[in-house]
Amino acid sequence: MDWATFGYEGNDIVVAGTGTGFESLPGALPDDAPMYAYCRVDIPTEETTRTRFVLISWVGEGTSPMKKGKVSVDKPALKAVIKDVTIEIATSDRDDLTQDKVIQKVRSANY
């Protein structure tokens, strides 16, 4: 899995980082700020490997209410730029971002 994270610089959404692998993504998401992650996930099947894209809306447990509200307002603008999304995951729990759980959600999307 390859991923990019997006965070806030003032009121602007900017690229915060990039990486490879499920293991490294949760560590790139802070406890006190909202962020977004766009992930490329390769799903092996019997015949081939299918590539799917996941948009994660992250709101850390320590995020202030005002910053939490920005996610619902700003996510549509991000989705206008990132158009190829198989599923969206909204979470504040790093346990939701394991390889098995993300692949299971992508497979259940029947996309």
Rank of each mutant, 00 (worst) to 15 (best):
D2Y: 12
D2K: 14
D2I: 13
W3G: 04
W3H: 10
W3S: 05
T5H: 03
T5W: 02
T5R: 01
G7M: 08
G10T: 03
N11S: 15
D12A: 14
D12E: 12
I13K: 12
V15T: 09
V15S: 06
A16Y: 03
A16V: 02
G17W: 07
G17S: 13
G17Q: 05
G19V: 08
G21D: 04
G21A: 08
F22S: 00
E23K: 10
P26D: 00
P26Q: 02
P26G: 01
G27T: 00
P30G: 09
D31T: 10
D31N: 11
D32P: 04
D32V: 04
A33Q: 01
M35D: 00
Y36G: 01
Y36W: 15
Y36E: 01
Y36I: 09
A37H: 09
C39F: 02
C39Q: 10
C39V: 15
V41S: 02
V41M: 07
D42W: 11
P44V: 13
P44T: 11
P44L: 13
P44E: 11
T45K: 14
T45D: 13
E46T: 12
E46M: 14
E46G: 12
E47Y: 10
T48W: 15
T48Q: 15
T48E: 15
T48H: 15
T49Y: 07
R50D: 12
R50V: 15
R50T: 14
R52A: 14
V54T: 05
L55T: 06
L55M: 14
L55K: 02
L55A: 08
L55P: 05
I56M: 07
S57V: 10
W58C: 11
W58P: 08
V59S: 02
V59R: 00
G60A: 10
G60E: 08
E61F: 14
E61A: 15
E61P: 12
T63I: 12
T63R: 03
T63K: 03
P65T: 02
M66C: 00
M66K: 04
K68H: 06
K68Q: 13
G69N: 07
K70I: 05
V71Q: 08
S72G: 12
S72E: 06
S72W: 03
S72C: 07
V73M: 13
D74G: 01
D74C: 03
D74L: 04
K75L: 15
P76N: 03
P76L: 09
A77K: 13
A77M: 11
A77N: 08
A77Q: 11
A77I: 10
L78M: 12
K79C: 07
K79A: 05
A80Y: 05
V81P: 05
V81K: 11
I82Q: 06
I82L: 15
K83N: 10
D84N: 14
T86L: 08
I87C: 03
E88A: 04
I89F: 07
A90Q: 11
D93R: 09
R94G: 03
D95P: 06
L97N: 04
T98L: 00
T98V: 01
K101W: 04
Q104T: 06
K105T: 00
K105C: 00
K105I: 00
K105V: 01
V106I: 12
V106T: 04
V106L: 06
R107T: 09
R107Y: 05
S108M: 09
N110S: 09
N110I: 11
N110Q: 11
Y111D: 05
